[in-house]
């Protein structure tokens, strides 16, 4: 077991929105609340959850693109939350990001070479212009694009090609860690697999560590080493991929898994349809945040917030009734699980 490359402790972010002139009551939104986890070198932690659960915010908090309200981020032994602006910028050479929107995240007025060379220029990694072009050409080759395109502009490329350009930019400075914020959810299904394969190949050839943010479990099945499930700003279950997929301990995880398409048409298909919408993050239910939608919630869940507790090897879940198959899908024979 290798050491943790990234260690997050008690990370939180409170956004406060003041109305009008700044008088009146400020409404507070706990976008991320007391999140802790480690990612080991060379591994991929997949962070899943519905939109609005704070997973993108968490990714940005880790990279200090948003200032955390509380908690600590330890990356390669350095506490990022305590760094000043200058040393933090130096650290960005080691940690980069791939963005969700392949259109908005590339400046329309800069050539492909200028976009990819952004980190190279920022850290002075190319000694001359020919050296810079050579670096860019090599990066383009590594992401499966031709070096001949470097003087073109992003608008001439498709979503998948643009995402490859964004990935080339992310690896340009030679980082050890990349936050991939839903890197394939804006792409056609046919292209999604290609981009995921590319990320996986780069992980092997460059020894990268990923935080892979996604909104469904099907996409991450392929790439993840571990899986963390987020609900309303908190992690409700985290564990090794096979553990979480085979024995989900939190009812929310189980519901998400039941919603993921299963490639086996003969497998018994029991889908748990969650009632209602995700509650507003500015008005999180008392007790367990999931109690308003949980099929097995009891009075205890409405009063007492469950803490994360160990349910298996490296596997924790935040549910009073955590156990393999908490909703008992298999046992209630003949009953439609669409309760």
């Amino acid at each position: 077991m290798s050491e943790a490359l990234l260690s997050v402790t008690g990370l939180g972010k409170v956004f406060s929105a003041k109305a009008g002139l700044g008088l009146g009551r400020a409404s507070e939104v706990r976008a991320v609340d007391d999140v802790s986890f480690d990612i080991r070198r060379g591994e991929t932690l997949a962070l899943v959850g519905e939109s609005g659960c704070g997973k993108s915010t968490l990714g940005r908090l880790i990279l200090q693109l948003i200032q955390p309200s509380s908690g600590q981020v330890l990356f390669e032994g350095v506490s990022l939350t305590e760094l000043g602006a200058h040393p933090l910028r130096e650290m960005r050479r080691r940690m980069q990001m791939v963005f969700q929107d392949p259109f908005g995240s590339l400046s329309p007025r800069r050539s492909v070479a200028d976009i990819i060379a952004e980190p190279i220029d920022a850290f002075g990694l190319a000694t001359s212009r020919p050296a810079r072009r050579e670096l860019v050409a090599e990066l383009l080759k590594q992401v499966g694009l031709s070096a001949a395109i470097m003087d073109r502009y992003p608008r001439q490329f498709s979503g998948g090609q643009r995402q490859r350009i964004g990935i080339a930019r992310a690896i340009a400075a030679g980082p050890s860690f990349i936050v991939a914020d839903e890197p394939v959810s804006a792409l056609d299904v046919s292209v999604q697999a290609q981009v995921i394969n590319l990320l996986q190949d780069l992980q092997e050839s460059r020894g990268l560590t990923y935080l892979f943010i996604a909104h469904d479990l099907a996409v991450v099945r392929h790439i993840a080493t571990s899986v963390a499930v987020m609900y309303l700003g908190r992690i409700v279950e985290i564990g090794p991929k096979h553990e979480v997929y085979a024995r989900p301990h939190h009812p929310y995880t189980q519901a998400l898994l039941s919603a993921a398409p299963n490639p086996d048409p003969d497998a018994p298909r029991r889908q748990i349809v969650l009632r209602g919408d995700v509650p507003s993050p500015s008005n999180v239910p008392r007790g367990c945040a999931f109690n308003s939608r949980c099929p097995i919630a009891t009075a205890r869940c409405r009063e007492e917030r469950p803490e994360l507790r160990t349910v298996g090897a490296g596997h924790v879940a935040a549910c009073h009734y955590a156990g393999p198959n908490p909703i008992h899908l298999g046992e209630v024979s003949g009953m439609s699980a669409q309760a």
Binding site: L65, G104, S105
Partner: peptide
């Protein structure tokens, strides 16, 4: 607020370079 500005910050580009290369041309 454009994502490419955040991308530049994440890439380690300095503030003044972001203003000159990303804000002003746009």
């Amino acid at each position: 607020a454009e994502p490419f500005v955040e991308a530049a910050v994440a890439s380690g580009v300095t503030t003044w370079r972001i203003i000159l290369r990303h804000i002003v041309p746009n």
